[in-house]
Write a protein that binds this DNA or RNA. Structure first.
Length: 359
DNA sequence: TGCATTTGACCGGG
DNA sequence: CCCGGTCAAATGCA
């Protein structure tokens, strides 16, 4: 990585640029089609914004000359950051701190890698960006947190037992902005059920219904269809970006990492983007009274994915293949533990596979 | 009937 | 002792 630019990053940038071009084209089409111009426009703007940010980040970290170490952990997630404003910096510091703590923590006690993500519920789309993290989560607890208005929900990978996957996440609604959720991921997925494998559960409606009830008839699946595609691709892009970008990321691990990483990574850009756009604030999509537990567990975040999985599958077909290949190829449960204790030494080789698909 | 969620109890760190 | 995190029995749902 001479000059701080690895070939992966260059490739990524190219891809991002390409993606942006496509999004722009779509934008034109949408505006002419004029079916639901507003929503489409909004989302497209976000997409574009996200791309821009991603590029910004890449450049930034690239210029830092250390896309892998400190910059890595803090950089990507938080950085968008400065560009975004508000939340950004906080998140950045937070994330950075968390990543730094990682090592210490692991010494003190067996703690899995952990990173935080913020997600804002998107009022128009009825889905909050980031989270169909492609994993199947099972709620195992809920706690009232001191000083927090809303309880915190605890989830763990559904395949914890069957596949010895110890990934967990905590979801908590923000006090300040009820439409924002803080999601803290812990541990890396070692299961082979990432993304594509997380088949749309036979009954996503179950959760969806709950959600829809809480929200309003947010049945914009039609217009969202396309957007979902865009979004999904965007997500992957960011994932990949993160992969390369955060080589040192604790949870980034050779092949398997891809599927596992998306959870956190996808959200980074998207959440950042959410905060960026002045749009998503029409209505809070969630009634503050909504029991977080239900909403979150069932929310489009995860498996539900507002039925977007169909779309995702289509649009991500390539990526899906890639992911499945990677995830299924190496599911290394045991490695994960070790790796969590010694995060930094693992990254060097991993992003290649994924990138190869992109280029 | 099997799986997911709920929720109070329990545990361990600070 | 307080608080965050997890467990596990009870309950709900398809």
């Amino acid at each position: 990585m001479e000059n701080g630019w690895s070939w992966e990053q260059k490739t990524l940038i190219n891809e991002l640029i390409h993606g942006m071009e496509l999004a722009k084209q779509l934008r034109v089409q949408f505006s002419t089609a004029s079916s639901s111009p507003e929503t489409a426009e909004i989302l497209l703007q976000r997409i574009l914004a996200s791309y821009e940010k991603t590029l910004l980040i890449l450049r930034w970290s690239g210029s830092m000359g250390q896309p892998h170490s400190a910059g890595v952990s803090g950089g990507p997630p938080g950085s968008p950051i400065s560009a975004n404003g508000s939340l950004a910096s906080d998140e950045f510091d937070k994330g950075l701190k968390e990543h730094q703590d990682l090592n210490d923590v692991s010494k003190k006690r067996k703690v899995l890698p952990r990173w935080t993500d913020q997600v804002r519920v998107n009022s128009e789309t009825g889905l909050e960006g980031p989270h169909d993290d492609g994993f199947s989560w099972r709620k195992y607890g809920q706690k009232d947190i001191l000083g927090a208005k809303h309880p915190r929900s605890y989830y763990r990978c559904t395949f914890r037992i069957s596949q010895n996957c110890w990934a967990t996440k905590q979801v908590q609604r923000s006090d300040e902005d009820p439409s924002v959720f803080e999601i803290t991921y812990r541990g890396r997925h070692t299961c082979s059920h990432a993304n594509n494998l997380v088949p749309v559960p036979p009954s996503p409606e179950k959760q969806e219904e709950k959600q829809n009830n809480h929200t309003h008839d947010n049945q914009q699946e039609q217009p969202l269809d396309i957007l979902a595609n865009i979004r999904s691709s965007l997500r992957i892009q960011t994932e990949d970006f993160d992969n390369t970008e955060m080589g040192a990321y604790p949870f980034s691990f050779p092949s398997t990492s891809i599927g596992c990483m998306n959870s956190a990574n996808s959200s980074f850009s998207l959440s950042a983007l959410e905060h960026n756009t002045p749009l998503g604030s029409s209505k809070p999509f969630l009634s503050p009274a909504t029991p977080e537990s239900n909403y979150l567990s069932g929310c489009p975040f995860q498996k539900t994915n507002f039925g977007g999985l169909h779309n995702v599958h289509r649009s991500e077909s390539d990526l899906t293949e890639m992911i499945s290949a990677n995830t299924s190829a190496t599911c290394s449960p045991t490695l994960d533990l070790d790796f969590s204790l010694d995060p930094v030494e693992i990254d060097p080789n991993f992003p290649f596979d994924s990138l190869a698909f992109f280029s």
